[in-house]
Simulated scan of single mutants.
Amino acid sequence: MLEEVVATRYVTPLREGGSLPGIVEADDLGTYVMKFTGAGQGRKTLVAEVICGQLARRLGLRVPELVTIQLDPVIGLGEPDQEVQELLKASGGLNLGMDYLPGSIGFDPLAYAMDSEEAGRVVWFDAVINNVDRSWRNPNMLVWHGEPWLIDHGATMIWHHNWPGVQASTAKPYDASDHVLASFRPDVRAAAADLAPLVTEDLLTEVAADVPDEWLVDEPGFDSADALRRAYVDALLPRAATVHERITLGERTEQAPSRAPGWLTDHLAPWPHATKHDAKDGSE
């Protein structure tokens, strides 16, 4: 289970992405990048962050430590930015925090080198979780103390937006042509040989157990949070075993639009965009 902390101060928004995450301080004296249930894809994004982030950490990949953060919307009353106020109002209760890495900078494949073994491990992992958002356009990697760190796994496991089509979705290949690490000749077969045996039913069950019940309730087609957790296990387990056979590396599409799905690119539009709070009010 993830450690739970309480937000004590909202510091500043991070406007690089569409979901407007923010830096917050908490009662454990830690500083976190907070992602909100009221933004963009809401709780499904947080579910993906937990399952994929915790899986990566279990496999030895660098991902900032995750916590759950209790947020009292009253924190937003003093915010001068109306969009921030609305987001905080829409996100009362349990949200997600990622350990803030002070002094980190964005990964640039032209400025940093990576061997084919480590690149292969990241590409293989992204193939398993079907990460469509670690491309040369948007690397979603940081460099901290000279090491690469993986962040932002909200745009993964696309099948959980359409559970009836899960089998067809998880059987699809993974096109890594635009992956930020494609130029480092990633050795995905070596990565699969090392990492795939570690992705067991027990490991995935433990990872899924880290997702709070309240982010899993009321999902159509599932009668309990545990049943939904089981669906994540059943989707990831066979994919981890064989996806290395379906990873393709072709020419980078420098002039082509992003291959990310519409539901993602819509929420990468500049803030403000619709929030869960707006939907409850009947506005878009």
Rank of each mutant, 00 (worst) to 15 (best):
A209I: 06
A192M: 05
L181P: 04
D194G: 02
F184D: 09
E206G: 09
D202V: 13
A190P: 00
S177A: 14
E206V: 02
V199W: 01
L203E: 05
R189W: 05
P212I: 12
D210I: 00
L181G: 06
R185C: 02
H179G: 08
T205K: 03
S177T: 12
A182T: 13
F184L: 11
R189M: 06
L195F: 01
D187M: 05
L181H: 06
D187H: 08
V180F: 06
A208Q: 04
V211A: 10
V207W: 01
V180K: 06
A190T: 08
L195K: 02
A191D: 11
V211S: 05
R185I: 00
H179I: 12
P197C: 05
T205D: 07
S183Q: 15
A191T: 12
V207D: 01
D178A: 13
A191P: 13
D210E: 13
R189Q: 09
T205A: 10
T205E: 06
A192P: 01
V188G: 06
L195A: 04
E206R: 14
H179A: 10
L181N: 07
A196G: 09
A208V: 10
D187T: 07
L203C: 05
H179Y: 11
D202L: 09
L203N: 04
D202R: 13
L203K: 02
V211P: 01
V188F: 03
V188K: 04
D202Y: 00
D213L: 05
A209Q: 14
V180L: 07
D194Q: 13
L195N: 04
P197S: 06
P186E: 07
L181S: 08
V188H: 06
V207N: 02
V199C: 03
A191Q: 11
E206K: 12
A196T: 10
S183P: 00
D213Y: 02
R189K: 08
A192H: 09
V199K: 01
V199F: 02
R189S: 07
D194N: 03
A193E: 13
S177N: 07
S183R: 15
P197W: 03
A190R: 14
A196R: 12
A191E: 10
E206W: 00
D187N: 15
V199S: 01
R185W: 01
A191I: 11
V199H: 02
D194W: 00
V211I: 13
A182M: 13
F184P: 08
V207R: 02
D178L: 09
S183F: 05
A191N: 10
D187F: 05
S177F: 08
D194R: 13
E206I: 01
D202E: 15
V199N: 01
D213T: 11
A192T: 04
S183A: 15
A209P: 09
D194K: 12
L195M: 15
A182Y: 06
P197Q: 04
P212H: 10
L198S: 13
D202H: 08
A193R: 14
H179L: 12
D194F: 00
L198Y: 00
A192S: 14
L198K: 15
V211T: 08
V199Q: 02
L181C: 08
A192L: 06
A192R: 03
D187S: 12
L203S: 03
A196F: 10
R189E: 13
A190F: 00
P212T: 12
V188I: 15
S183C: 15
S183W: 08
D210K: 08
R185L: 07
T205Y: 00
A193K: 12
A192E: 07
P212C: 11
